[in-house]
Design a protein around this nucleic acid. Structure first.
Lengths: 127, 127, 127, 127
DNA sequence: GTGGTCTAGACCACC
DNA sequence: GTGGTCTAGACCACT
């Protein structure tokens, strides 16, 4: 489990932890039913408070990505990738809409927006 | 000057004010050197505290969009729209890249991303 | 009399007017006993309030650069250039000291300060 | 953290605080990521309002000299001293040029300017 | 009248 | 405990 917390970032620390675990689960780096570090151990490793790691796990449990087994620890849940992806698509649309609206403030119209978007999509992605 | 504040929104009030004035300046609805409502008048009109309108103006001054003249009032600064738009385009590209990377975590590949993007762009924007 | 007021400048308007008249007197562009525009005319020409031009003239009178003749108007005073220059030298030293102190904050020591100073002094001044 | 505020000084209190913290950061007396006193503690120690210390910190955050971490406190940012010093040197040159030009108005020519400058540089700085 | 500075409170989210 | 936001007052310099 590689997790890095950036104290300078504007997102809360618990969200950084939450996002990184979520990402590793979705990418298949952590497999279903695999054990995760305990709240206390993770807090210790990252040098943050127990409350912070608990909050991160709470969100993951809430989204069924992680299951907590009393007396044993935290485990990666059974993932329904299709469901998650569909949910994400709604979120993605929202974000694109927000971007488009912001762009219009700066005088970037639909055509220009599409052009910029295409440029980015055509960039080589390997570093 | 049409400014609307939603006291229930999660964005700070001063940010709402800041964004709306910024938008009107960037869109050219307010011209360079044109007078803006005074801190007190705006606070009164919007029924918020003087500190809140001041903070909004402070940010605008910080970005050189507004100049404050002691004893006279607030004025729209001399804006280089082209420069601002070019800077923004770089920022926009960064954000699209981040979105694309995030999407790949959720299993949304380039083609699907482009498809979702097109759907959003074709939405009617008036509502 | 060419006077320009910059509403965006951070110095008060009365000070801008004061400084420009003072400069023209010191440079000999305005000669001793020459008539100056009245407070009201100047206020009108510059599109500022009478109070503002009065304040500028008050300072000039205070420094004996201008004399006000009741019922007639404002006139350039008899200038003691040597006295003014000596006074200014004290002011100049203060400013250089302040600059030097500020420089030390940024890690610019005496030698570096002298070097930068020399570079500026050797610049061609025309243009 | 030694900070002294002079309530009688003409500079705003928040600026005094801002300058002294900035100085200590730039001089390396405070290291990157080191914790700074909290807004409340500093306000208490200096016997000024919380708003005043906040404004000082706000300016420092604005210049990326300080980072604020919600729920934890204020920390010294990661500073690129070389970059800052180089930027400052440009600013310093501008100021010296302005001073030189002002001096010429008062009849202080290049040689005299250099002489006055040398006198100041040779003053002992400890007092 | 205006903006610039300052005070003494308050509630919230986060750690 | 911390910083982020907000309120309702105040005095000053400038126009």
């Amino acid at each position: 489990m590689d997790i890095v917390v950036d104290i300078q970032a504007k997102e809360p620390i618990y969200e950084q932890i939450y996002l990184q675990i979520k990402q590793q689960i979705l990418l298949g780096e952590l497999n279903s039913l695999e054990a995760l570090p305990s709240i206390r151990k993770l807090a210790n490793d990252l040098d943050v408070s127990v409350i912070t790691t608990r909050k991160a796990y709470d969100e993951l449990i809430n989204e069924n990505l992680v299951v907590s087994v009393k007396g044993k620890g935290m485990y990666v849940g059974q993932i329904d990738r299709l469901f998650i992806q569909q949910n994400y698509q709604k979120e993605l649309k929202k974000q694109i809409r927000a971007l488009k609206e912001e762009a219009s403030i700066y005088g970037v119209d639909g055509a220009m927006f599409r052009e910029i978007f295409s440029q980015v999509l055509e960039e080589r992605t390997d570093i």
